[in-house]
């Protein structure tokens, strides 16, 4: 299926952090410890994009923006991409794919185990984002994709544990996540503006085309 305009715009925006990282890496401006910076930035981007994907559903029901559904898929896939990159930086750049280093690291560090579980759970979600898998799954697809909620919780736990002393940013993300969850249960899930103003109708159409 052809991507919508909304998806193309989203994909473009999602690639910007990667492009910045790439150019900073090439120009040597990723701090004196580039691998640490790469690890933190890919991780943070994955968290933000996963949170952004959770904003789509409440916004869609509130404003009747059906264009947000395909955008949600793009955001989810991009989050998975950054999470996978985050893992590759850890395993490849940082620990040089040396199992003698990586295995004890995983065994000793609870926050890495949490992160790996979250990444593992994202894999079936990413695979079943592809249209043709969705058709055969019917209601199971919805049930499977509810996994994103525990995954988000695990990701924030991982981020919290990986932070040194100052845990303000993971806590802010946790509050945002909690608010987004509240919008999924009544009465907040019922909020809707009713009839859409014309510009919203046009925006939706534009993003869907």
């Amino acid at each position: 299926m052809k991507p919508t305009r909304g998806q193309l715009i989203t994909a473009f925006l999602c690639l910007i952090p990667l492009a910045i990282l790439f150019f900073e890496w090439r120009s040597g401006s990723l701090s004196a410890n580039p691998i640490e910076t790469l690890t933190q930035r890919t991780g943070r981007t994955a968290v933000i994009l996963l949170l952004a994907s959770l904003v789509c559903t409440p916004l869609r029901s509130m404003f009747g923006l059906s264009a947000l559904l395909p955008i949600r898929k793009t955001l989810g896939l991009a989050a998975f991409g950054y999470a996978a990159l985050h893992f590759l930086v850890f395993a490849g750049l940082d620990f040089e794919f040396n199992l003698g280093w990586i295995v004890p690291e995983i065994r000793q560090k609870f926050f890495i185990q949490i992160g790996l579980i979250a990444l593992g759970l994202l894999i079936p979600l990413a695979i079943t984002s592809v249209q043709k898998f969705q058709r055969g799954m019917a209601g199971n697809w919805r049930r499977l994709h509810r996994l994103v909620y525990p995954v988000m919780a695990l990701v924030l736990w991982h981020y919290y544990l990986a932070s040194k002393g100052d845990v303000l940013i993971p806590l802010i993300y946790l509050v945002i996540f909690a608010i987004l969850m509240l919008f999924r249960i009544p009465p907040l899930s019922k909020i809707s503006i009713g009839s859409k103003p014309r510009w919203l109708v046009r925006l939706n159409k534009f993003l869907l085309s």
Partner: peptide
């Protein structure tokens, strides 16, 4: 003696 966050068995020399 491991630390819950960073590897204490190995290190990266800056630069």
């Amino acid at each position: 003696v491991p630390h819950p966050r960073w590897s204490q068995a190995t290190e990266r020399r800056i630069g």
